[in-house]
Design a protein around this nucleic acid. Structure first.
Lengths: 152, 152
DNA sequence: GTAATTGCAAATTCTTTGCACGGTC
DNA sequence: GACCGTGCAAAGAATTTGCAATTAC
């Protein structure tokens, strides 16, 4: 799906839920689409959106992100560092992707592979818990930082 | 391991790292041990500690939790709700336990079972990422809340 | 036209920091 | 008596809210 298509689709979702399509919301969506691989905080999103729509306020970005979160268009995630980050949902992906958080450089990488297989079924059966979604993050050292160690 | 033993062991860890064993720190540890199954926020911990040591300040609780976190005695975890929670590490547990977060009542349950099996190895090999720890949380509906739906 | 949306500033919430005082070896 | 740890209050950071002005439909 191209950025244009994704944008159009999300616009329709917004519209269908009774929200107006303001330039501010479109700019925010564009920033999210253009930085799909990153895990931007609200401040960071604000910074990028400001370059497209300099008059925008931070509160509007927060409000837009809340709507997108409610509509399940983005996922609000936290990596235990006290800041909320916003992660665009992969369209059509069965599962929320996983993350690799490097404890040294702080970089967050996404992996799309489904590592959980039938684990959700096990949880459903054994704990009588109706699974809707999951969050899986590995903490460790990324390849780049491992190399730095070998050099020294 | 009994509470007493766990307390003694943690005391030694603190001591070995050059920290003093103040009554405030001991009270905080006790609260964590007595509520091992919960996922208390700093405020909640403060509330309980205050019942043991009414003169304690919230800042001290935060400072104690930071030390315990640095010493890997507790894990700081966030469930995407904007509050940090503190989770006592199971002594001797190979893996950080997993969580079941109910989207309706907000309750968080712990599960100790190792659901990830060889997944860490896969991540190591396929992504050249040296895994140190992980966080796995399932979002869904707990048994109690499921029952409420059936009744209505 | 009118109800939703916005920007701004103020308010809240969570957490950290500065500093003078108190306790310990 | 140097030093670590504490309580308190103030500062800081992240997020939310109130409100008058503006805008999309």
């Amino acid at each position: 799906m191209t950025t244009g298509e994704a944008l159009k689709k999300t616009k329709r979702q917004l519209h269908d839920s009774g929200f107006k399509l303001t330039p501010q919301r479109e700019a925010t969506l564009l920033v999210l689409l253009e930085n799909e691989k990153d895990h931007l905080s609200a401040e960071e999103i604000f910074f990028f959106v400001k370059q497209k729509s300099p008059e925008i306020g931070l509160a509007t970005v927060y409000r837009t992100l809340e709507i997108l979160s409610d509509l399940k268009i983005v996922d609000k995630v936290s990596f235990d560092d006290g800041v909320s980050r916003y992660d665009l949902r992969k369209d059509g992906a069965k599962h929320f992707h996983h993350h690799l958080l490097c404890l040294e450089c702080g970089n967050i990488e996404e992996i799309d592979e489904d590592l959980l297989g039938n684990v959700e079924e096990i949880v459903e059966k054994r704990f009588h818990f109706a699974v809707k979604d999951h969050r899986l993050t590995f903490h460790g050292i990324c390849q780049q930082c491992q190399r730095k160690h070998q050099e020294s």
